[in-house]
Design a protein around this nucleic acid. Structure first.
Length: 464
RNA sequence: GGCGUCGUGGCCAAGCGGUAAGGCAGCGGUCUGCAAAACCGCCAUGCACCAGUUCGAAUCUGGUCGACGCCUCCA
């Protein structure tokens, strides 16, 4: 039985999809005006864990993620760069996809761009006006009338009457009846170039919240299972989505709201406005491996703040190396008899699954894996693991890696030069010419190749 | 001001009323020509603090201190 913490009810709930064995999942995607930083990527990592666990559990998941290519930032930045909105945002959209691939994040089934859904957004806004949930203003904008939607504030647990005027509201240049009302459509303003579309209210562009309401409903229907995003989206974004969607369709919209906590740097939220962020490329350029970054973002529970440090990346790499070392050894066992490990392997897999079923407790799940890993290493060391058992261990590893996605390793073929050096060293060792043997080992070390002398011969690994 | 989240060993982290998983680092040993990897052993009488409930509390309740987030377009 799977449990998730549902933000809207503030408690753990049993997960029951609307349709048996099928899950309709919508996750808030990037605004493509810049490269994603690893705080942004943590959200997508969490969603990848959720997606992988649902699939691991036998669900057929339909995953949709939006690409926000029209908002204040994409407009401003594209104009500054002198590129059209389309060319500008496409560049960062592709960079985003590259990041996903680098981190071994499973691709969503649909990536709708906001600019592809302008017509549908206008249609929905018309419905909201017809039903009395929205009104247009003199400057050609349309606002959602929060006072008309009685359930407003349920997700964020706020009383709309208490909403105070913050600094951001004062900056709002649009004409609305009440401060808490939010824009569905923004009338054309100076300084936005030719980035606007025709609408019944004149030229303009959509507000931010409406795109998610329209695009999620387009692909998943007016009532679907899970909607994810960072905690900062709870209010106002998701609260507004609920208001728009429920008001427009009269349906329930979303059953489970899952939100991930932030990634911190030096104890502070990583954000572009604070300029304290790292992009994935920054970390790769510092020599960190994609799998170590993936592991680091993955292993802290998604509702826990994650303080990012380079030490964590190093510790992650070491942990992955240990998993991979066991996997490698299992692949090289030829003993005919040994202890039966099926019981402890099944127990590990069961515990692994149970931990994840408990609101994606990945740290607990990893703990179960390492208990098993330690036992297997001990058996291998005592020559008590048969080839048959090793094969079942490898199978279990594959199962685990459906979630972790960090063990599979593509070994690059050795160049013949390196191959020859290893042969030369073997001869030097046979001749007890330790000086030459060490010289060769140091030379390979410089080429990022580490040698290990085992009873079965010398093996090499890439340095990590 | 309102609404929340969190404080567990040197670092990270599980734990959800029954006596502190796991990872990283460190220390001692085995193996090795020396290493590396792996193995064996050691590493929190205590979970921010103070009260309380209970046979029993890291876990529940109240309070104190500290950190962080959201409060109109940030993942």
């Amino acid at each position: 039985m799977i449990h998730f913490y549902n933000t809207i009810n503030r408690k753990l709930e049993i997960f029951t999809p609307l349709e048996d064995k099928k899950v309709k999942l919508y996750t808030c995607g990037p605004t493509v005006y810049n490269f994603a930083h690893i705080g942004n990527l943590r959200a997508y990592m969490f969603e990848d864990l959720l997606r992988r666990f649902l699939e691991f559990s036998g669900y057929d998941v339909h995953h949709v993620m939006n690409i926000t290519d029209i908002d204040d930032k994409t407009i401003r930045r594209s104009m500054e760069s002198g590129e059209t909105l389309e060319i500008f945002t496409e560049k960062y959209t592709q960079a985003f996809f590259n990041d996903l691939d680098t981190l071994n994040i499973r691709r969503a089934h649909n990536y709708p761009r906001a600019t592809e859904f302008i017509t549908q957004m206008i249609d929905t806004i018309k419905v909201l006006i017809d039903k009395g949930f929205a009104y247009s203003s003199d400057d050609g904008s349309v606002f959602f009338k929060v006072s008309k939607f009685l359930a407003y504030g349920k997700l964020a647990n706020i009383n709309p009457d208490d909403m105070r005027v913050g600094s951001r509201v004062e900056n709002d240049e649009y004409e609305k009846e009440e401060v808490r009302d939010f824009a569905l459509w923004k009338g054309k303003k100076d300084g936005e170039g030719d980035i606007h579309w025709d609408s019944p209210w004149g030229r303009g562009r959509p507000g931010w919240h409406i795109e998610c309401s329209v695009m999620s409903t387009h692909y998943l229907g007016s009532h679907f299972d899970i909607h994810c995003g960072g905690v900062d989206n709870i209010f106002p974004h998701h609260e507004n989505e609920i208001a728009q969607s429920c008001a427009a369709t009269g349906d329930a919209f979303v059953n489970y709201w899952l939100h991930n906590e932030h990634l911190l740097v030096d104890g502070q939220k990583m954000s572009k406005s604070e300029n304290n962020f790292y992009t994935l490329r920054d970390l790769l350029d510092k020599g960190m491996s994609p799998e170590a970054i993936r592991y680091t973002l993955l292993i802290t529970h998604y509702r826990q703040k994650l303080n990012f440090t380079f030490d964590k990346i190093k510790a992650s790499q070491k942990a992955i190396n240990r998993l991979r070392e066991l996997n490698r050894r299992l692949n090289n066992i030829s003993l005919e008899s040994g202890e039966d490990i099926s019981k402890m392997t099944n127990l590990m897999l069961q515990n692994f699954n149970d931990r994840l079923a408990d609101d994606l407790n990945i740290s607990g799940a990893l703990g179960e894996v390492f208990i098993w890993v330690n036992k297997l290493f001990a058996l291998i060391d005592k020559q008590k693991l048969s080839a048959e058992s090793a094969q079942s261990g490898i199978k279990a590893f594959k199962k685990i890696d459906e979630i972790l996605g960090v063990i599979e390793l593509i070994d690059e073929p050795l160049s013949e030069d390196i191959d020859q050096l290893i042969v030369d060293r073997k001869q030097a060792r046979a001749d007890k010419n330790w000086a030459l043997a060490d010289e060769i080992r140091d030379k390979l070390d410089g080429l990022n190749i580490i040698l290990e002398d085992t009873p079965q011969g010398t093996i090499w690994k890439k340095k990590t």
